[in-house]
Nucleic acid binder design. Sequence first.
DNA 1: GGTGTCCATTGACGACCGTCAATATGCCAC
DNA 2: GTGGCATATTGACGGTCGTCAATGGACACC
Lengths: 112, 112
Amino acid sequence: MPRARTTSLDPEVRLLAALADPTRLAIVRQLATDVETCACDFTSCCDVGQPTVSHHLRVLREAGIVTSERRGQWIFYRLAAETAERLGAVARSFVPGGLVTVGDLVSRRVRA
Amino acid sequence: MPRARTTSLDPEVRLLAALADPTRLAIVRQLATDVETCACDFTSCCDVGQPTVSHHLRVLREAGIVTSERRGQWIFYRLAAETAERLGAVARSFVPGGLVTVGDLVSRRVRA
DNA sequence: GGTGTCCATTGACGACCGTCAATATGCCAC
DNA sequence: GTGGCATATTGACGGTCGTCAATGGACACC
């Protein structure tokens, strides 16, 4: 029986797998910088064709990493608010004594 | 030109790709729980054969996620100390204002 | 040295994934 | 409605990855 990757039912694996691609990580980085980006602008930042961008945006959307909003002819993408927190939770689960509340990352941001 | 995944030179992509597999994440979770685990014990926890475990341990080792130490006949594995921090840094980079020091996760652990 | 145990490596197979060209769909302006 | 632009979908191709059976190598004990 040959493997199960993104086919995996584990939500953390799905999150990590969705991020573990150079093009998709570039998209996410772009969204972390500009908050909101039109789909048409990813083709230039990632150096891939339009169908490929569309494919990756779908993967990110289905993983709950980004959200999309149609505005007339264009579709704008944002990072989902919980994305950093979800990944941070995985990171914290790696440190045995890490009994930190899940809201820490965001609250820290506010305080910073 | 058909893609580049773990072949990617981006260290963050390599980190995420190494974690984005059910078997490897199970190994890491085991190490987060028991601190130190003999290689021979992963076959039971992950429900795969011994060569497969060995393969995944190599991937994790080359990604700097785990460290190994031979002790007589057995080889013991640990989570690398920086693993949680490295992943936490990726998480923080997703929140635009997240100007938090990289030591935060660990210091939080000590205080917790 | 011989034997048994633990672990790594090799080679092969099948599934999954990233990419693109071509096409379809949806929205707007005229 | 016709034309044009932005995005999604389809289908196909090639590469990568996870898995296993078989083998090899290292270590301990007799």
